[in-house]
Design a protein around this nucleic acid. Structure first.
Length: 492
RNA sequence: CGGGAUGUAGCGUAGCCCGGUUAUCGCGCCUGGUUUGGGACCAGGAGGUCGCAAGUUCGAAUCUUGCCAUCCCGACCA
């Protein structure tokens, strides 16, 4: 492994790519646009997944699993959704290979094994799920149906980037069915709140909750709620979405229920999802020139203990102290590792764990133990302190909380400093070019204006914030009247 | 998918223009030893389909074509 990481300020994009690979989160694979999530990256995903899963269950949802393949006829049933995803679908057309008669040892697709109907590899699962729900829902007593699935999906993107946009990615998708419009909207908002709580509290990434404009809306949705985060290079990242689907899918798949008055009604739907893209958000929100900065609550490893041996006789003494500390920390539920590997010296280990973003490093040598202390280094501020071994476990536990809070506060300050009001188009362009970040500006509410602004500035409307104050003004582009500001940004 | 660039050991690279002994160097790896408070040192050693495939040639890392992958700029993208 080479020592130097490209500097964040020199080339943000290169810094990001190198960081993902060098910190062992993920790697490119032999398949175009698809990544291998390595053990360290997968451990992070597992921590995120487990917490989200807990929050879904606390809000009444259960998990199920639906097929990877969607017959084309089902996929095309909801037209808006199908058209929205059509150009990025992988399609299975055959079910068998055979030996190539002209090329020994090679295989060809067996032309006789052509499928009667093509299978679409799910880019999202509304179609197969709503086709299934039709058989599950007859009465209002079957509602609400609150189901989530953890799955992989495929979207054949032209240009991919590790975690941020891969052809295959892992995610969860919730699909719920409700008796009333009000209840479905309530669910949609509830889940965008769950996402915001998770991302802010566990990933320490502040987000803005909002609603998408019509042109940024999910294909097939009546309304798309989202959480938008700001990366350190001033670009926005959509971190999660929750869709109110109205009765679109119920009508497309003919899902009706009898209400209390025995009247047949179409059900109301929502769907919501977050993906491994969140890991990209985590990296770009917190990391620095030394590497990743993991928020303690989801860090695969929270504390690493590095021994510093001086002569053979010191080894058993340090080992014993370290094991004692490790066990005490484990008893408090802290994820800790004692790295006594002898193939790297302390300095190398320090740099390595900084690259991986481990929140706390404890260095333990004879010099320390003679004074009943250890050296504690925190990753977020890179501060080193000498701490007494008496009460060290409680100290470290509290420090993890403090680091979590500090990382969040730092990201929040950065985010807040990078929301700027623009009152003219010139001002907007200037701010986007010189500062980046979110631009709060009046918009006339039309797709035409939105499109023109996008063409001229590459900035899109990220969202209309949920708690937006109502304020009379004029659209920065068209000069027409507007009732509120919306957030524009260049985005990933 | 359009324009540009790149691909040589696990990583980073020299050689390619101008074809010709055994493919260069550093890091890492293995063995032994000395070490260990910010990416150790000495000695010895292993590791190569030169991205893949075809072509030109007596001979290809080097020239030609196709393909694959990665990066940058576009287009595309909830």
């Amino acid at each position: 492994m080479s020592k130097e990481l490209t500097k964040r300020a020199d080339n943000y994009s290169e810094w990001y790519n190198e960081l993902v690979v060098k910190s062992q989160l993920a790697d490119h694979s032999a398949v175009r646009g698809c990544m291998v999530i390595k053990p360290y990256g997968y451990a992070l995903w597992e921590n995120m997944r487990d917490q989200l899963d807990k929050m879904f269950k606390e809000t009444g949802h259960v998990n199920a699993y639906f097929p990877l393949f969607v017959p084309k006829s089902l996929f095309e049933a909801e037209e808006t959704n199908a058209e929205g995803f059509a150009k990025e679908c992988a399609v299975v057309t055959h079910y068998r290979l055979k030996a190539d008669p002209n090329n020994k040892g090679k295989l060809i697709v067996d032309p006789e094994a052509k499928l009667e109907e093509e299978l679409v590899v799910r880019p999202t699962s509304e179609a197969i799920i709503w086709n299934t729900y039709k058989g599950w829902i007859q009465s209002y007593r079957d509602l609400p149906l609150l189901i989530n699935q953890w799955a992989n999906v495929v979207r054949w993107e032209m240009r991919t980037r590790l975690f941020l946009r891969t052809a295959e990615f892992l995610w969860q998708e919730g699909h719920t069915a409700h008796a009333t419009k009000e209840e479905a909207i309530e669910e949609t908002i509830k889940m965008v709140n769950v996402y915001a709580d998770f991302v802010e509290e566990y990933m320490a990434v502040p987000v803005i909750k909002g609603v998408k404009s019509a042109s940024e809306r999910f294909a097939g949705a009546e309304d798309t709620y989202c959480i938008e985060a700001l990366m350190q290079d001033g670009k926005a990242l959509q971190a999660g979405t929750s869709h109110f689907l109205g009765q679109n899918f119920a009508k497309a798949f003919d899902v009706k229920f009898s209400d209390k008055n025995n009247k047949l009604e179409y059900v109301w739907a929502t769907s919501w999802g977050v993906s491994t893209r969140l890991i990209g958000a985590l990296i770009m929100a917190h990391s620095d020139d030394q590497g990743l900065v993991m928020p303690p609550k989801i860090a695969p490893l929270q504390v690493v203990i590095v021994p510093i041996y001086k002569g053979e006789e010191s080894k058993p003494v340090i080992d014993e102290k370290a094991h004692g500390m490790m066990n005490a920390l484990k008893a408090l539920g802290i994820r800790v590792k004692y790295d006594d590997s002898d193939n790297a010296r302390p300095g190398w280990k320090f740099a390595e764990y900084e690259l991986k973003g481990v929140p706390i490093r404890v260095a333990m040598g004879m010099r320390d133990l003679e004074n009943n202390v250890v050296e504690v280094a925190r990753r977020d501020t890179k501060e080193k302190q000498t701490i007494s071994l008496d009460g060290i476990t409680d100290y470290l536990k509290n420090l993890l909380d403090e680091i979590q809070q500090n990382i969040y506060n730092r990201a929040l300050t950065f985010r807040n400093e990078n929301i700027r009001e623009a009152n003219s188009f010139d001002e907007m362009v200037k701010l986007l070019d010189e500062k980046g970040g979110f631009i709060s500006a009046h918009w006339d509410g039309t797709a035409e204006t939105e499109e023109k602004i996008k063409e001229q500035t590459k900035a899109t409307i990220r969202c209309i914030p949920l708690d937006n104050k109502q304020e009379e003004g004029i659209c920065v582009f068209s000069g027409k009247s507007s009732r509120e500001r919306v957030l524009f940004a260049r985005a990933y």
